[in-house]
Design a protein around this nucleic acid. Structure first.
Length: 558
RNA sequence: UGGGGCGUCGUCAAGUGGCUAAGACACAGGAUUUUGAUUCCUGCAUUCGGAGGUUCGAGUCCUCCCGCCCCAGCCA
């Protein structure tokens, strides 16, 4: 799949760039940027933006910067910048030496603010946050001018410098642009440019007592970096006039901003606030919990970077709010893993089977292909003996019509081995099935005379004596509601999002699985050796995603 | 009821006045299969939020209407 050809990715931004290039804009340069705020971990929604920004640059032979939008020290941390870098890299993108920080531009931004004040286009405000809100007016009523709006330039200059030098406490004053308190666009009603924050910044420490707001920092950062196309999400559409105003007023190079709809995914929460809540309230075990839609969570869960990239390509880029079906992400994953993942056998919920007519101490090493999609992947051998484990759900004492698996008196094929027939069901005192006594049919061994004999079902199995006992974690959606982002957190949490199985029986070859190794457990799904909790010789597996399960659908229908 | 956006199949999404409205996922049938997996066929919008209008011809242009999203942080 990764080598397959795709229809040229086309979206409205791609077209805009083509037109710009045709019109000779920006000297034929294409320069984008991915501008995360380091206040949380990246998630699948960010992946869409990353693929778009880096992808566009790549498609047009341009460049994409990684720029941390770190203008709010109270929320931002170095831990987040590290995770973001790791995730972008893992996704397969390279910003080379263009790792930038809005905080790199604090001196320049300050200088520009002074210029604005000198031009009579900004003033120091004494009103409290509350008063500013009241003066701002409402959606349908214009605001009122602040009593400090016409403060003399010299006074503004002095006050702003005092702000910078930490002479005032947090919240005492702000710097505002002087635009239009009656504008129908609230962003034009004298927006705050700087606020006082005596907080330690992850990079500039306590050098600054004032920090620029997003609107004052973003466009100028784009301008400094020579960005040509500044791509952001829809909620910033209203900010574009202000983005333009800042750049035009300053008379500096003016990149163009374009907005696209952010990603929403069914059964998934993507709002930063809720993701943070899941972590801080310990509903999940950290940002990289395999149930999290974070890049690090998906990675730990076993998703591949290329599957995520493929997904981002398939969902498209447009301006309509939309919610993509989680099934598409899973499809992209399975499409890749079906091709690449080695097949192995693992019994998750074991049921013992004794082959009564098989010699006590005999062991056969049977050949098993590693991947039917890749014959060149070769084969391995698996020990087969008198006592085996099969999956509990592969046996029913009183099966319905279309049950193709094992049942009293019924025959099934053991994959790569023999056809067996169930002859006796052994139960304990409380009536629970403890083991099955079966007969194997020697001439049905794979590759031999009657190997072609037809049976309806084929089961996976593991030799009891040779099995590796291991822990396997069945990961499922964190939420059972289709659009969990629309309600508050405890609401639709899936109580079964994580099922930990500690008595799984794996084929011996799995003992040496390394953290991060991916497999298809035959008939059960795709699994990865957990990168955090696996120990040498005792891997722990996470279920990345189950296989498509037509039988489950048939069962449901009854 | 200010401003900014958006409305094409269950879900994404092409389509920029002219063949029977792409494609993917999902879904439903069928074939092959020592994974009820994969693969392979087949089906799945007489219709583009609605109503008018322009035009030989409209999802595409015009008018009006309806619905949904975003904005009143010293967050981004």
């Amino acid at each position: 799949m990764s080598t397959e050809e795709h229809a040229a990715p086309t979206n409205f931004i791609h077209k805009i760039i083509e037109e710009d290039l045709a019109a000779g804009k920006n000297d034929g340069r294409v320069h984008t940027r991915f501008p995360p705020e380091p206040n949380g971990y990246l998630h699948i929604g960010h992946a869409k933006s990353i693929c778009l920004n880096f992808g566009l640059a790549e498609a047009f032979g341009g460049q994409c910067n990684l720029r941390f939008d770190d203008t709010n020290p109270v929320k931002e941390e170095a831990e987040f910048v590290n995770s973001i870098k790791e995730d972008v890299k893992w996704l397969g993108f390279d910003w080379a030496d263009r790792e930038f920080y809005a905080s790199d531009y604090f001196p320049k931004l300050y200088e520009w603010a002074v210029q604005l004040i000198k031009d009579g286009k900004a003033y120091v405000e004494d009103l409290s946050a509350d008063e500013i809100r009241q003066y701002r007016g409402t959606l349908s009523e214009p605001g009122k001018n602040s009593p400090h709006r016409d403060r003399p330039v010299d006074e503004n200059l002095k006050l702003f410098e005092d702000m910078k030098n930490g002479k005032f406490p947090d919240g005492a004053k702000v710097l505002r642009a002087k635009i239009d308190m009656a504008s129908p666009n609230l962003n034009f009603r004298d927006p705050v440019l700087y606020r006082i924050l005596h907080a330690k910044h992850h990079r500039t420490g306590s050098d600054w007592a004032i920090y620029p707001m997003y609107d004052w920092a973003h466009g100028q950062s784009d301008s400094i970096e020579g960005v040509t196309h500044s791509i952001c999400t829809l909620e910033f559409e209203d900010h574009r006039p202000l983005y333009d105003w800042c750049l035009d007023t300053l008379g500096v190079y003016h990149p163009r901003q374009y907005e696209f709809a952010r990603l929403n995914l069914t059964y998934t929460v993507l709002s930063k606030r809720k993701l943070l809540q899941l972590v801080t309230e310990k509903i999940v075990n950290g940002w990289d919990d395999p149930r999290m839609p974070t890049i690090s969570g998906l990675r730990r869960r076993g998703f591949t970077a290329s599957a995520i990239r493929e997904f981002c390509e398939r969902i498209g880029v447009a301006k309509a709010n939309s919610t993509v079906d989680l099934a598409l992400l899973e499809f992209c994953l399975r499409e890749e893993l079906n091709y690449s993942a080695p097949r192995v056998m693992a019994v998750l919920k074991p049921l013992k089977v004794v082959l009564t007519n098989y010699p006590e101490d005999k062991v056969e090493n049977l050949e098993a292909e590693n991947n039917p999609e890749q014959p060149e992947a070769g084969s391995r051998t698996m020990p087969f003996s008198r006592e085996l484990y099969i999956e509990q759900e592969d046996f029913m004492e009183d099966p319905p019509k279309k049950f193709f698996r094992l049942a009293p008196g019924k025959e099934v094929r053991l994959k790569h081995a023999y056809i067996i027939k169930c002859e006796e069901v052994i139960k304990n005192g409380s009536g629970e099935i403890t083991e099955l006594h079966c007969a194997y049919i020697p001439e049905t061994k794979s590759g031999e005379a009657e190997a072609g004999r037809k049976v309806k079902g084929t089961l996976h199995w593991v030799s009891a004596r040779h099995a590796v006992t291991a822990e396997v974690r069945l990961v499922d959606n964190l939420f059972s509601e289709i659009e969990p982002d629309k309600i508050e957190i405890p609401g639709s949490l899936n109580p079964n999002s994580l099922e930990v199985l500690t008595d799984c029986k794996l084929e011996p070859s799995l003992k040496g699985a390394q953290p991060g190794d991916r497999f298809q457990f035959l008939r059960m799904g795709y699994f990865i050796a957990d990168a955090v909790d696996s120990k040498p010789g005792t891997p722990i597996f996470n279920r990345t995603t189950p296989l498509r399960d037509t039988w489950a659908k048939v069962k449901k229908k009854g």
